[in-house]
Design a protein around this nucleic acid. Structure first.
Lengths: 223, 223
DNA sequence: ATTCATCTTCAAATTACCCTCAGATTCATT
DNA sequence: AATGAATCTGAGGGTAATTTGAAGATGAAT
């Protein structure tokens, strides 16, 4: 994991680097915005620690530059809390994270871990129905806090069901969502995947939430 | 669309509010769980963004509180905790959705849109007569808030009755609406479906709203 | 090439639904 | 009250939809 530290206070940048290196990150240090931009062009960083209140240049410019190159994803802004004006807030909150000086290195490390995790997994997004929880980024499912093994089609089917819970879904809708459109007439594969999904869910201690709607399709619901 | 943001970091909550306001949501902010509960008692929110890792109180408690009041439907949990256990705990307490910090505001917005769409869709397209409620999208019927199982023909019949309530409907009209036109002469199948529908409705605690009009057909009414 | 997991096809078994029917009941008219 | 027509009811058959188990493709990984 490669990290770029953009910070002019040498003491701070070096102690950060030391701490992070100890946690098996590989660190580069840039003491000016100009050097920072050079480095970002040369390397792909998993996370960039950016002090936006350094003398001799606007920290916002480098942010905009990174944004133009679509590299803001892993940026963690550090700044003195009282120097946060509205512009900075807009850039920092939500999309990127920020950390106010002074901070504990452990806190910094935790933030970095979170950012990297989000970058890699694009956020852990969970969707749930009763005792079923899907991780829509990892494409995994758990029932009663137990992971269950689903094939790709089974997972897609389950996600489609949960995101349309309590609604009647026609077999054609299922077919066109999981396959192309033109599979008209034959629903055998739907039947089979439903059967297998049902078996896995119920044998994981689940009620059978997949209700058949005769002549139409299915409904995923508890009643 | 009304949204409640439960978040103690002022910078974050305000920039979320700014972003969502810009997308024509109306936002309230609660910086403590206590205030959040107060607000939920005063207003009906379409979506509640809930940071469950705020200092000074367990975020899960507020979830349980919401659950007790049946208000968990539009809850989107946001949290910086990274262990999956915490997420699962939050979700099993009733919420539907989870988003890990840090996140992109656009992603948050998309998630909110999905939640609201889902919420509204459920309550949409309802047709009501006395204690009978039809969901014309889900093709389901409930009597006294209890779902009853109807076959397709039974459902169609009931919907036809309710949309023509308090009016006399000839058997020919029923026949031509539920079947083609040309079934003239024999009404046995109507009798049978009426019989079955009556049985299901009355055994769900309903008065028999289907009044026979001798020589003509039926009238769906309460007197 | 072989293996393995997965996806799909197939056919038989089961189920749900719609409709028919015949006997019972209700209704309007006399 | 008596009559015939209309309606109700329970039972059952026929059909199509669904479920199920098994076996045949497919395709990726070794």
């Amino acid at each position: 994991m490669k990290i770029l530290i953009v910070e002019d206070e040498k003491d701070l940048s070096e102690s950060i680097a030391a701490y992070l290196t100890d946690e098996d990150y590989s660190c580069d240090i840039a003491s000016t915005y100009h050097k920072a931009l050079e480095k970002t062009e040369l390397h792909e960083y998993d996370c960039i620690l950016l002090d936006i209140t350094m003398p001799g240049g606007s920290g916002l410019d480098i942010l905009n530059e990174l944004k133009a190159n679509n590299k803001t994803d892993g940026v963690l802004i550090i700044s003195a809390r009282n120097s946060l004006d509205d512009k900075i807030k807009g850039l920092t909150s939500g999309a990127d994270d920020y950390l106010a000086k002074p901070f504990h290195l452990s806190e910094l490390s935790a933030r970095i871990a979170a950012i990297i995790r989000r970058k890699n997994f694009d956020g852990n997004n969970l969707v749930k129905f009763e005792n079923i929880i899907l991780d829509t980024t990892a494409k995994t499912a758990s029932v009663n806090n137990q992971f269950i093994e689903l094939t790709r089609k089974e997972y897609e089917l389950l996600e489609y069901f949960i995101s349309n819970k309590k609604r009647v879904i026609s077999k054609d809708a299922i077919a066109s969502h999981l396959w192309g459109d033109d599979m008209a007439g034959n629903y055998d594969f739907i039947y089979t995947h439903i059967k297998n999904l049902r078996k896995k869910l119920t044998s994981a201690g689940d009620a059978d939430y997949i209700k058949s709607v005769y002549g139409i399709g299915y409904k995923f619901t508890d009643r």
